[in-house]
Amino acid sequence: MAEPVLALIGINKAFGALKVTDCVSLAVQPGELHALIGPNGAGKTTLVHQISGVLRPDAGQIMFKGRDITELASEKRAQAGLARTFQITSTIPSLSVLENVALGVQARAAHPLALLRNAAEDAALNEPAWAAIAAVGLTERAHVLAGRLSHGEKRALEIAMALTLEPSVILLDEPLAGVGREEGERLIALLNSLKGRYAMLLVEHDMEAVFALADTVSVLVYGRVIASGDPASVRADPAVREAYLGEEG
């Protein structure tokens, strides 16, 4: 197996007496779509927060492209190519789709904070932004303010913003939550089209989508990884069936 692009090694995190992350180890391979599932309260979002740097783990190591990033600040992780989307959509409402995406391009440009040159007409920012917008199918909506997009479009915009970071790994925190059926299908098709080009860690409730998309599935229950492997073997794992899938009915 190749060197994993993202590896968690024995991550622990407790809030008071409550262990929310209990010795979690995970590896995401380049180009792989790795799904992380688990019942509510299993600690999925807490784990994503630790990977993206919002929270610091109490113990353990996070390796990204062979480098220890456990103590690195959020923005430094983003600059290094670790992108994330949020469980609650997070865009800049009064900027247009194009400007939102160009903001991401700008973060990696040679002069990210140039003081006087007009940014709206800057081809060095806009061309890559247009490409990312096309990749998520929002070209026709490029000049609409992000605040006026539909829910599914905001999700797609977030993914476009993540793409501009030239990410090695994209963390997707429940991208399908609250999205209607039709838009959901479009997003699944979008994620499918990105598979292979980007490594993705997908946290998701929609089982159908997870088993259709994922190369690898890990199951988190009470902060522990109880199973990890290809979708078929995880689906067949008795511990998983008991602890998690059994609940689904």
Partner: peptide
């Protein structure tokens, strides 16, 4: 209107 200003505007909202 610059790159700097865009970041400043964006940070006000999010």
């Amino acid at each position: 209107a610059s790159r700097f200003g865009r970041v400043l505007r964006a940070a006000r909202e999010n």
